[in-house]
């Protein structure tokens, strides 16, 4: 029983990685541009389409094809900041949200214009086990049973740990990271201190969009059909992870992003018990409801600090 529970948890690893990527991206924008970037999912999807085109038209393997996708994401992220957000600084918080929605609309229309009518484009995982002729899973013997772990999931975990680890190090020790933390705490003062907040936010948008594309490629490699809106669910989960962990830190949302998919699978696992078979259909509802309770008790998130405004 315990082993199959561990297998269930391991099955959520890929979704954890994708959610962590999206969450980090969303948090970066939340902190530097004070808005919820609803275009994150669409940007990621667009980048993923670029990668898919590389894969299918030019037969480039995915671990190389992912880079053009990320490059497109980075350029678009920069463009959005320079062309729209930098000029719309005096737009209020809701206005900024609507601007990101406008970007969603543009990308939603642009994808069929650029890539034709995109329906169920084939995609491949980072390590194409079908081509290599090996099993897609690792079986790890544990306590008399076997834990099932997909190879794609394991590769994604390694990539995520490296990428997010490097980003955390950059945040902590690089000049850019210091700038981000400064701009996040008070943009005006940061400018007074000689920090070029324009560069900081532009870089944040670029990194956020790139992370989104990488997450999308991982997600698609796991066997999800790509479409204009296939990244909406991870993006929504990223926002929810943000308030679960608390946007006031960077590690809080990331931990939230790890908790949500694992909790969802853990609740789904209860279906193995007699009389509970329908619970797997309701797992997301239960997790979201539990999250609401947590937020009600701790409104600034699990790891958030309440910011007291002084007059």
């Amino acid at each position: 029983m315990f082993v199959s529970f561990l297998s269930t948890i391991c099955a959520s690893l890929l979704v954890v990685c994708v959610t962590v990527m999206c969450t980090f991206a969303v948090t970066l924008i939340f902190k530097t541009s004070t808005t919820t970037n609803f275009a994150e999912g669409s940007l990621a999807a667009l980048g993923c389409y670029v990668t898919a085109t590389c894969l299918n038209k030019y037969n480039i393997p995915v671990y190389i094809g992912v880079f053009p996708g990320i490059a497109v994401g980075v350029v678009l992220g920069l463009l959005i900041d320079v062309a729209i957000f930098r000029r719309g600084r005096n737009v209020n918080a809701v206005g900024k949200q609507i601007i990101t929605m406008g970007i969603v609309s543009i990308i939603f229309g642009a994808i069929p214009l650029i890539f034709g009518t995109p329906e169920s484009i084939p995609f491949e995982p980072f390590y194409n086990t079908k081509k290599a002729g090996t099993s897609a899973n690792f079986l790890i013997p544990f306590m008399g049973g076997k834990i099932v772990l997909t190879k794609h999931g394991l590769i994604c975990v390694i990539i995520t740990v490296i990428v997010i680890g490097v980003l955390f190090l950059l945040l902590k020790h690089s000049k850019w990271g210091l700038g981000v933390r400064c701009a996040a705490s008070n943009e005006y003062t940061a400018e007074l201190m000689g920090i070029n907040t324009h560069v900081i936010t532009a870089m944040s948008w670029a990194i956020a969009a790139g992370l989104g594309v990488l997450g999308a490629v991982m997600y698609a490699g796991g066997g999800v059909m790509i479409s204009t809106s296939f990244m909406v669910t991870p993006m929504v989960n990223a926002f929810l992870a943000g308030i679960l962990g608390g946007f006031s830190t960077f590690y809080g949302p990331v931990i939230g992003a790890i908790i949500i998919p694992i909790a969802a699978n853990a609740v789904g696992f209860l279906a193995n018990f007699p009389g509970m078979s329908s619970i797997s259909r309701w797992n997301m509802v239960i997790v979201y409801a539990a999250m609401l309770v947590v937020i009600l008790i701790k409104p600034s998130g699990l790891f958030g600090k309440k910011i007291v405004k002084k007059v």
């Binding site: 609507i98 601007i99 929605m101 406008g102 970007i103 969603v104 609309s105 543009i106 990308i107 939603f108 229309g109 642009a110 994808i111 069929p112 214009l113 009518t117």
Partner: peptide
């Protein structure tokens, strides 16, 4: 097909 959405996004 997509132009309408692009335009409405730009308009917004």
């Amino acid at each position: 097909n997509g132009f309408a959405y692009v335009f409405s996004g730009v308009l917004v």
